[in-house]
Amino acid sequence: MNALAIIGEILVLIGTFFYFLSALGLIRMPDVYNRMQTSTKSATLGSLGVMIGVGLWALGSSFGSVAWLTKTIVIAVFLLLTNPISAHALIRAAYKSGIPLWHGSVVDKYHEYIASKTGAENAEETAEEVSE
């Protein structure tokens, strides 16, 4: 047990806490967009904490080698880059398929943008073309 292992354990603890927050957000939030917001952000951060923490923890343990840390860093970078893209694609698909915002929402600039491009009537149908 040395400093690296302790730092790793703390990181894993922080990561699991953020995992818990992400699951809590899934239950607590009112609509799809808010749920995606909470769950993807905190799940990404939680995964980063857990993975880097495991790498450091293994480095500090008696069996430790740098291979663990290298692998966890590779996985963490991959997750860090892909998770926001998948969240973006999911949310965009949700908006395109007409899932309504929470009733307490105030602004919907994207809808206004689509409407300004095409005219307010057929905003839903032509939403796909303008969005590039």
Binding site: L81, H88, A89, K96
Partner: peptide
């Protein structure tokens, strides 16, 4: 397919 993916998606895909 009729809808092109968004810029984020296409860029991310071509990088990945």
């Amino acid at each position: 397919a009729r809808t092109e993916g968004s810029v984020v998606l296409t860029t991310g895909t071509s990088l990945l």
